[in-house]
Amino acid sequence: MQISSNIWHDIRHIDVLLFDQFSNHCLANTVEPLRAANALAGRDLYQWQFCTLDGAPVASSSGMQVAPHVSLADATGDTLCVMPSYGIRALDQWTVVRALRRVADRYGVIAGFDTGPWLLARAGLLDGRRATIHWDELTAFAEAFPDIDVQRERFVLDGPRITCSGAMAAFDLVTHLIGMAHGPLLATDVAHLFMSTDRTPAQGPAVGRPGRMVARALNVMQAHLEQPVSIPDIARRIGCTQKTLESRMREAMQATPQAVYHRLRLNRAYQLVIETDQPVSEIAGRCGYDNASAMTRAFRTAFHATPTQVRRRQ
């Protein structure tokens, strides 16, 4: 099924529906990339809130208590992420199914994370669609819901329905969605922030996950932020021509090597601005700029604020 990219641009306010025994890891891998995207973009691309069926607190599988912002009935987002984990059979009951059916028409996109696809399927929200689930439940899921095209994938996007197999896949999914909505360069920025760009994509050409040649070039760039090297030199170091590197980089990142390198240096500057008390002049030198004024101009263009303004927000 062809998916309109407009759907992913419309994901802005996300309601995360939690249940007792949810996975901390899955939750963090969902919302932390969104937080990072906001920070790197310099504006709120995404908002999110936590909700439960009745508005009461829940506890994760490791005992972390979460007090929700609202009950599901009072949630007002455009996207619903259903996130149970352990004990899915106990949640497979009419009260849960009815609650999901009641709010289904309210959301443009509905996603099931970890074992969440089981609840979406029981509510009839995945009928006739492709879907996945945590792989421990895959066989039982296929047997219980024969009208669903069950696939052993890390995540599946089928129209306004998203299913994701677990915590590690959640990070891949969210960075993929960020890339679809806001470009692969931002998705790669987010992945670099969490030191994950060297992982091999498990599902096709995920947006923001470069191939090996581009990944090697990114590694060279990251290693030479303070004293930038030329693009021809980067190509030589990874064993290809400059033309090949430029072609691969455009294909994977929709940007030139020069633009990607420039963005990586600015990302490093942003981190130093918010994480240290170093003067802007020193940060400029550590990120390959000749002077603070040049870095500040580039910083303001990228993040819609000066380094000083960003620090004042912290």
Rank of each mutant, 00 (worst) to 15 (best):
V66W: 07
A131W: 07
V280I: 13
A302F: 01
G179N: 05
W94H: 13
I3V: 14
N219M: 15
T241G: 14
K243I: 14
T301K: 14
A56M: 12
V214T: 13
L119I: 04
P117E: 09
G211S: 09
A181E: 03
A169M: 02
R212V: 11
Y261V: 06
V280H: 11
S247E: 12
R313V: 04
Y46V: 03
R312S: 14
A111K: 04
P146Q: 10
P160A: 11
L126A: 03
P57M: 10
E251F: 12
R89P: 02
P257M: 09
M221F: 03
R154K: 14
L27Q: 08
R312A: 15
A284R: 04
D290I: 09
D74H: 13
M221D: 00
I110H: 04
C51M: 08
R161G: 03
I178F: 00
R89A: 15
L138H: 09
L225I: 07
L91T: 07
R212P: 14
T256M: 04
A28K: 07
A284W: 11
H134F: 15
H176T: 07
M221Y: 04
F19Y: 05
E143D: 15
Q258K: 15
G63L: 08
S230L: 11
E32A: 05
I238D: 01
C81K: 08
T139H: 13
H176I: 04
P307L: 04
P210A: 05
C81H: 10
G116S: 03
R122A: 12
M195L: 13
Y289W: 13
A41S: 12
T79Q: 02
G63F: 05
I274K: 04
M221C: 09
A215Y: 00
G124F: 05
T115S: 14
I234N: 00
N267A: 07
C240A: 15
L225H: 08
P205S: 13
G159F: 04
Y289P: 07
D92C: 12
S5H: 10
V190K: 02
G159M: 03
G87K: 08
Q254V: 07
F19S: 05
H304P: 02
P228A: 03
S5L: 14
H134E: 12
G288H: 01
D172S: 12
A252P: 03
F141Q: 06
G159T: 06
K243Q: 15
A217P: 09
C81V: 15
A144R: 14
Y86S: 14
L125A: 06
S293A: 11
Q314L: 15
G124H: 10
I148G: 06
Y270C: 08
G204T: 02
A292E: 11
A67D: 13
E137C: 14
I231S: 10
V190F: 00
P184Q: 02
T306Y: 03
P33F: 03
G128C: 09
S71L: 07
R98F: 08
A202V: 06
R89L: 12
L17P: 01
R130Q: 13
M249R: 04
S23V: 02
P279S: 06
A292T: 06
A305H: 03
L264N: 06
A217N: 02
V16R: 05
D233I: 11
L266E: 06
R161A: 06
R216M: 14
H192Q: 13
A56E: 14
A302Y: 01
S5I: 10
V273K: 00
F155K: 11
R209H: 08
L186I: 02
A121I: 03
A217Q: 02
Q271L: 14
